[in-house]
């Protein structure tokens, strides 16, 4: 269903998501190349400014187009989207510029999360190794979702990859810096969560009075810097 880097590209799959949205599945896994294609296709759909489109939401390997079902139907929506999807597939080597020219962010993190020791034990590293591997690279914002301002960042150093916690916490504090799988993220709000908490930051990730309200945007690059206080 998906293409590896330089491999043959399987066609995208278009399916209804209920009666007001269409999902375009580009791949079947979290992967930087697929994520870039998702961002590029989202930019193309925005640029096409199709009248019934209400919103475009992104995931790792799929995007969803919300439309006004009172004024169009599923078949017409798919017909309008198909040429955009086909055109995007033919210029994979040159993704839309808007998808690659993100901003750079440097975020200060105090690495004192409640799971830092456990992450070190399970990965066979020292806590300072965990910190240097987490802060020692640049991440790309794949997409935002879950709750306002929550950015899925990848890819994590392969030595830090762990499955989610078996027992999610009922409440993860706002500002918690967390890892799970090959991803890292910051919790913008105090919400339940199953990721491993390794640090915290004071950065404000979402302010509904700003436009856009989220601090991070798909395609942006993020670097974490360890601070003592």
């Amino acid at each position: 269903m998906t293409a590896g880097e330089g491999g043959a590209i399987a066609p995208s799959i278009i399916t209804p998501l209920g009666d007001c949205a269409v999902t375009i599945q580009i791949g079947d896994r979290a992967d930087p190349v697929i994520a870039r294609r998702v961002r590029a296709l989202a930019a193309d759909i925005h640029a096409a400014a199709l009248a019934p489109v209400r919103d475009v939401a992104l995931g790792y390997a799929a995007l969803t187009v919300w439309y006004d079902a009172l004024h169009t139907d599923y078949a017409a929506m798919v017909s309008a989207l198909e040429p955009i999807v086909a055109a995007a597939a033919t210029r994979l080597g040159a993704p839309a510029t808007s998808a690659v020219t993100g901003r750079e962010h440097v975020i200060s993190v105090r690495y004192d999360g409640p799971d830092l020791e456990e992450v070190a034990q399970r990965t066979g590293l020292t806590t300072s190794d965990v910190v240097s591997r987490h802060s020692g690279r640049q991440y790309t914002v794949y997409f935002l979702g879950f709750v306002p301002g929550f950015a899925y960042l990848g890819e994590l150093d392969s030595a830090l990859v762990l499955p989610r916690r078996t027992e999610p916490r009922p409440r993860v504090p706002a500002g918690a810096v967390a890892i799970a799988g090959a991803q890292t993220a910051i919790y913008p709000y105090a919400i339940p969560g199953g990721w491993h908490l390794i640090g915290r930051t004071a950065v404000n990730l979402f302010d509904p009075r700003r436009d856009p309200p989220a601090t991070l945007a798909p395609g942006d690059r993020v670097r974490f810097v360890a601070v003592e206080e």
Binding site: L17, G18, Q25, Y60, A61, A62, L63, T64
Partner: peptide
């Protein structure tokens, strides 16, 4: 568990 993708009310 699938790679996270957009969902909607009613899903």
């Amino acid at each position: 568990a699938l790679p996270s993708a957009p969902v909607c009310p009613g899903a």
